[in-house]
Design a protein around this nucleic acid. Structure first.
Lengths: 207, 207
DNA sequence: CGACTAACCGGACTTTACCCCGCTTACGCG
DNA sequence: CGCGTAAGCGGGGTAAAGTCCGGTTAGTCG
């Protein structure tokens, strides 16, 4: 379940390795639920899993890698919705509607997982350097739209940043620049509206 | 020169402290120039400056704080240009033109300082939690523009992320998603064009 | 069924950010 | 000009990330 796309390679993952990865993920979730993400240490995770530290590092490469893996795992359901769910999130709706719907979904996902997301962004570019799903999806939809005169690849990156950056800043550091504290649903609503505005502004052809 | 805005407080900084800050900044630049940012360690910086480790931490709070300080210092010239330089970067030009000009300036600044910028983004929200200059400036210009129906504060954050995020990703991790390697000037030109497109799309009133 | 090999596992080791707390020094006041 | 005190300073101490390499085991091939 963890590397379902790597069927071309000879040895995707050894059985015990897969079992241990699963165990580590589960243990990590438990530790995070118990003490918060900041208390999740490599030593502790190894010990609580009954494994050695080397194993943990082999699996995830770095501390941030653990949170990455957790995030990816949580994201899988959303991924399915996009690929084969009902419109407008899934295929079938006009691209602009899909963009708006995707933004909403992503906003809610990040709002729910922001503690993990925070810890997943840390030091060096860990290992995989796998491009973020968000950007890929946005790019595909933009290409369908084909806005005249736009650098679509770059625009995809810009929109991805615009979607995620401010939200994460807000979630991490709290309200900024003289804005009142918002509860969860107000916050997501505001960001959804902002995202819709941006997408329509960028993608609607000028008269 | 380092805390010129704190004149209301009784003792902004003691003379020796200011001297040491300056010394540390200089030494840090020298070490970075010599061995690259990754080799700049707190111990080494303290030793090479002839100061104690505690002093370094008192000044900058965290390793990332050093790079923050360096970046702020480098940014000051640009800041002056914006506040009292010639249009369109400085005051006097129409807001849209100023936005475009600011984007160009910022892109070049980040391209020149990306190694430091990379190291400045690390762990926890260090200390000051001072909102980024970029966002403030963009917000001011947007307010002048007053796009109908927009959440200007949020939009400012979105545009800031759109301006900086993809550029930094590119500079940090290299070209992505099947794009060829670009040299410095091609890269900045591309991002400048992308920024102009975005700003005009968002700020030009629909017919 | 047995041997081979490549991947995996473990835990000691190194490096480094960051903390702590007693000592020292700059600056204001009498 | 001498004193008090608050800020600055120093460097040893801790914890945690990431590395290394010898021992072990899963999966394969004859």
């Amino acid at each position: 379940m963890s590397t379902p796309l790597t069927w071309g390679t000879p040895h995707p993952e050894r059985a015990d390795a897969a079992r241990n990865r699963q165990l580590l993920l589960t243990t990590a979730r438990a530790l995070i639920a118990a003490d918060g993400p900041d208390c999740l240490t490599m030593d502790r995770l190894a010990e609580r899993s009954g494994l050695g530290k080397g194993t943990v590092f082999r699996r995830f490469g770095t501390r941030a890698g653990i949170f990455q893996a957790l995030l990816d795992d949580n994201e899988r359901a959303l991924q399915q919705e996009i690929l084969s769910g009902a419109p407008p999130l899934g295929p079938g709706a006009p691209p602009v509607d899909r963009l708006v719907a995707y933004g909403s979904a992503r906003i809610h996902f990040l709002a729910e997982n922001h503690e993990i997301a925070r810890s997943a962004i840390d030091g060096r570019p860990t290992n995989g350097r796998r491009p973020p799903l968000s950007q890929i999806h946005i790019r595909v939809l933009l290409r369908e739209l084909d806005p005249p005169g736009a650098d679509v690849d770059l625009l995809a990156g810009q929109l991805t940043s615009a979607l995620e950056g401010p939200l994460l800043s807000q979630l991490f550091d709290g309200p900024e620049l003289g804005q009142a504290e918002l509860d969860r649903s107000e916050l997501t609503a505001r960001f959804e509206a902002g995202w819709r505005y941006l997408v329509e502004r960028v993608c609607t052809l000028a008269a």
